[in-house]
């Protein structure tokens, strides 16, 4: 693998594995990491290293979390990913909101139609976790930021609610919390009035070592299997293998933002 990806392949991985090992926090992971350093390591074990990051270890730029959306498998009328996101992250589904235009939507199903050919496509749209995020560029306080592992987040401790990031986002991925949440938040997902929010790639799950997101789990459970989540820097991960095999596109690729979400079938 290292021959194919000299910049992002095994050496970095090996180093990460060694760090893990030296910390001697989790024997299994240490062993898996050492094994991963050897050639032709089983993908599962590699993923274990990335996912099973010890809790005292910071998110690493050796990892880049990403998502593959296969629009050809995405079910028309299926809303399972949206429901799962709302349940996991504690935002009220728009249908239940008293103020639908002001209700936050972290993920939404987008229905597309070519006016000429009548070809229809549908897909989930959410924060694209750009490598060059415009929301991070414009944020006056630095509250909007990209974590080392590529996840774009809002630090609600420094967000002043200016909404400049919402003006800057080409994907309409961000929402302002317009009203009091009255302690309805999930303990793992703080969110609050006057701050901007968006998809976090279920960062609480990622940090827990789940290695997946609520929407992906729901999509798999529904049998559509349209979503794959994983480390795009790891050549052996499922997402990397699929991205090598099938043609994918980035939405508004003309903006050259290097997105963390890639679409097939658009």
């Amino acid at each position: 693998m290292s021959e194919m990806n000299p910049n992002q392949g095994s050496p970095a991985r090996q180093q990460a594995a060694q760090t893990v090992e030296s910390l001697q926090r989790r024997r299994f992971i240490g062993a898996a990491g050492a094994a991963a350093g050897l050639a032709i390591a089983p993908g599962v074990m590699l993923i274990e290293v990335a996912h099973g990051r010890p809790e005292e270890q910071a998110a690493s730029s050796a990892v880049r979390w990403g998502m593959l959306v296969d629009a050809t498998k995405c079910g028309t009328g299926c809303n399972d990913c949206v429901t799962a996101c709302s349940t996991e992250n504690g935002w009220t589904p728009v249908a239940e909101s008293a103020h639908p235009k002001q209700a936050p939507q972290w993920i939404r199903k987008l229905e597309l139609q070519d006016p000429l050919t009548q070809m229809e496509t549908n897909l989930p749209m959410m924060c694209q976790h750009c490598a060059e995020p415009p929301c991070v560029d414009v944020c006056p306080t630095g509250a909007s930021f990209k974590r080392a592992d590529g996840i774009v987040l809002v630090n609600r401790h420094t967000c002043i609610g200016c909404r400049y990031c919402m003006m800057a986002c080409p994907y309409k991925a961000r929402s302002l919390v317009h009203e009091q949440l009255n302690d309805t938040q999930k303990p793992d997902v703080p969110r609050g009035i006057g701050c901007v929010e968006s998809c976090t790639f279920c960062v609480q799950k990622v940090d827990r070592g789940d290695g997946t997101t609520a929407c992906v789990e729901a999509c798999t459970a529904s049998g559509h299997n349209a979503l794959v989540f994983g480390d795009m820097n790891d050549p052996e991960s499922e997402i990397s293998r699929k991205l090598r095999e099938i043609p994918t596109k980035q939405v508004r690729a003309d903006l050259n933002l290097n997105l963390g979400v890639r679409y097939h079938g658009i």
Partner: peptide, 11 residues
């Protein structure tokens, strides 16, 4: 988001 296509969503 998708130049040339009609778009529809809850958002």
């Amino acid at each position: 988001l998708f130049p040339g296509l009609n778009e529809k969503s809850s958002f």
